[in-house]
Amino acid sequence: MTTPPAPPAPGAAPASRQKRTGQAVRDRSRLRLVVAAGEVFAARGYTGATVQAIADRAGVSLQTLYAAWGSKRALLRAHLEFTMTGSATAVSEGRWAPTVGAELEAAAAPDPATRLRALASFFRSLAERVGPVWRLYREAAAVDPEIATDHAELERGRRRTLTAALAGLDDGCLRPGLTRSAAVDTLLVLAGPATYETLVEGRGYSLDEFEAWLAGTLIATLLRSPDAAGAG
Results as ranks from 00 to 15, higher is better:
residue 83 T to G: 03
residue 49 A to E: 13
residue 129 R to N: 10
residue 110 P to W: 02
residue 215 A to H: 04
residue 132 P to H: 07
residue 167 A to M: 01
residue 160 R to W: 06
residue 229 A to D: 03
residue 81 E to C: 03
residue 174 L to E: 03
residue 127 A to N: 13
residue 68 A to V: 05
residue 213 W to G: 00
residue 209 E to V: 00
residue 122 F to S: 10
residue 202 G to W: 08
residue 31 L to H: 15
residue 147 I to D: 04
residue 143 V to D: 10
residue 131 G to Q: 15
residue 137 Y to N: 11
residue 228 A to F: 01
residue 63 Q to I: 07
residue 65 L to A: 09
residue 150 D to T: 10
residue 40 V to S: 10
residue 86 G to I: 12
residue 187 L to A: 11
residue 48 G to H: 00
residue 4 P to C: 09
residue 100 V to C: 10
residue 137 Y to S: 13
residue 31 L to F: 05
residue 223 L to G: 10
residue 38 G to R: 12
residue 176 P to C: 01
residue 54 I to G: 13
residue 224 R to V: 15
residue 211 E to F: 01
residue 25 V to N: 09
residue 175 R to I: 03
residue 214 L to M: 06
residue 165 A to P: 07
residue 205 Y to A: 07
residue 99 T to K: 07
residue 177 G to L: 03
residue 65 L to M: 08
residue 24 A to K: 09
residue 28 R to C: 06
residue 209 E to W: 06
residue 172 G to S: 13
residue 223 L to W: 07
residue 184 V to H: 08
residue 183 A to Y: 06
residue 185 D to H: 09
residue 22 G to M: 07
residue 229 A to S: 11
residue 112 P to N: 09
residue 122 F to M: 09
residue 72 K to E: 12
residue 70 G to P: 14
residue 158 R to M: 13
residue 105 E to N: 10
residue 66 Y to N: 06
residue 219 I to V: 15
residue 81 E to W: 02
residue 87 S to G: 12
residue 5 P to I: 00
residue 117 R to M: 07
residue 26 R to P: 02
residue 144 D to M: 10
residue 19 K to R: 15
residue 180 R to A: 02
residue 84 M to N: 03
residue 12 A to R: 13
residue 55 A to C: 08
residue 7 P to H: 08
residue 218 L to N: 04
residue 137 Y to P: 00
residue 44 R to D: 07
residue 131 G to A: 15
residue 30 R to T: 09
residue 151 H to P: 00
residue 92 S to P: 01
residue 10 P to M: 05
residue 49 A to Q: 06
residue 4 P to R: 13
residue 140 A to G: 11
residue 152 A to Q: 08
residue 68 A to P: 03
residue 81 E to K: 08
residue 189 V to M: 12
residue 17 R to G: 01
residue 222 L to Y: 05
residue 94 G to S: 04
residue 211 E to Q: 14
residue 8 P to K: 13
residue 138 R to I: 02
residue 43 A to E: 14
residue 153 E to Y: 07
residue 70 G to T: 14
residue 47 T to Q: 08
residue 210 F to Y: 14
residue 99 T to M: 04
residue 185 D to Y: 03
residue 122 F to K: 11
residue 124 R to Y: 01
residue 201 E to P: 06
residue 23 Q to I: 10
